[in-house]
Amino acid sequence: MSDGLTMLFGLFVLLGAVGAAAALTWFERRLLGIWQDRYGPNRLGPFGSGQVLADMLKLLTKHDWVPPFADKLVFIFAPTAIVVAMLLGFAVVPFSSSLYIIDLNIGLLFFLGMTSLAVYSVLLGGLASNNKYALLGGLRSAAQMVSYEVFMGLSLIGVVMLTGSFSMRDIVEAQRDGWYCISQFLGLCVFIVAGIAESHRLPFDLPEAEHELTAGFHTEYGGMKFAMFMLGEYLGLMLICCMIVTLFFGGWLGPILPAVVWFVIKVFVLICFFILLRAAIPRPRYDQLMSLGWKYMLPLTLINLVVTGAVALSLAEV
């Protein structure tokens, strides 16, 4: 693609991602409604989809307030950071063999880098709020993200080993013979868990944990700044789903239908699965989360790495 087209496509992805995140708020609530034997938002527009608009209007018209006791600059910077980081992550997502913004040869590392940046947003937000709940939320998220960062990266190394490249396109192309969700099943499992933890979605939303911490790191946030955090969270969810599809479910690969459609269908199903997790699984205690990470996830990842390495080696020798 030419530079101009890429720019245009980039803009399209930007708007699409933000729009989809907005729609996702409504979609999630409807889906949760269905699984909890109720309706969810159903008053405004067809199937209540107008709720998105209403919420948006409400958030936009809300008083843009910074607590007098907060660190003003950091307080404002924090929510923007998460959105920027998550949106940047979309740059390396290949929607089809030709539809992508950029195909970096270190695409995967770029993605990991961007998701790591997101932790600053939560941490700084919690710190800048100068509120004990927010601080606790920030601390939790720092610990949680730093821990899960480790085996999130490690769990992908198997994929990289098999492909021999960090480029997203190469990884997808390498799955023409078989999706990595089979050969890298262990990696997939770990990545999903770590992905949830990274995007601090339920059941791993300990930084928010409204039962204990009021609203965790964004206790003091309201209006559009709060909306940015929400946007970041949904963008993160989508990004993680895009990544899982790309890395484990063959990306755009699929018969008959156009490549992009396959990609979107796969991502959509995964998003539904994430929402189902939210509907079904309760939040663990903080120490349980940590022990899950370090005592189970890390060893599993390492086993996966060793086995994958051995298999790859033995295959290469043959």
Partner: peptide, 21 residues
């Protein structure tokens, strides 16, 4: 048990909403 509850919740896709409108 985690998987079982995921499955059960999924089953609720087909049950009627209790909401009185």
């Amino acid at each position: 048990s985690q998987f079982r509850s995921i499955w059960r919740i999924l089953g609720h896709s087909f049950s009627r909403a209790e909401t009185v409108q």
